[in-house]
Amino acid sequence: MKKIVPKHPLAIRWMHWINFPVLAVMIWSGLLIYWANDVYKLHLGHTVIFGFFPESFYKKLHLSFRLAEGMAFHFVFMWVFFLNGLIYVLYTLVSGEWRYLFPDRHSFKEAWLVLLHDLHLRKTAPPQLKYNGAQKIAYTAIIVMGLGSVLTGLAIYKPAQFHWLTTLFGGYGNARVIHFILTLGYCIFFVIHVVQVILAGWNNFRAMVAGFDIVNDPPASAIIGPTLIAPSPASIPGPAPVSTNDKTPTDGK
């Protein structure tokens, strides 16, 4: 029998969807700024493999000669990015959602099994709660990255007033490099995230918009939400009563 089960709290859905356009504006305005001193290159020995970025890239996206505009957008939307992230972290801590998101000692092995499963090298995915090990690591890492962007950003923005922070990141030039690499990280995250969401299917995507998931079996309800903590009389003794069925709709990304 089909059952509606709450999955993502409203607050998390709001902050997730606010972050998406805000991060897009930050990356775009960051490119307008980076254009003015676009010196980063990927080297292999003395050979340049790739220079960030080719002229055609700037041309295509109309990124040239817009430093002032880029800085203006960047230094306004940074507040939204920072506050949204801060509220998200506080919310997950206060609500207890962090328990589903923060990796534990099993998550790394689990993430490896998830990877093998996703690459079709293993038939079954490991049992999971709201998020699998790979997701826990990814969703916690992205928050650490966000913090990194805020701090390296501040280290570049006010290197004299927050000189200790700039020193912490290895100086002004280094902080700028880290800030740039983190941005590349978001782009990579975005691509993988979207692919995984497409593969996970409609139910999983709807959960991020509407908040609920559909489960088919009554016991499946035990694998989502705080009900996990409350033992039911029928629960089997031993490890947490999680589903081992890799077809479970909670196999979301």
């Binding site: 059952k3 509606i4 918009v209 509407a210 609920f212």
Partner: peptide, 17 residues
């Protein structure tokens, strides 16, 4: 019915979105 609930809630959420 569960189906009706799903449809209604999905509609509202996506309309808002």
């Amino acid at each position: 019915s569960v189906e009706q609930q799903i449809n209604r809630r999905t509609f509202i959420a996506f309309a808002t979105w």
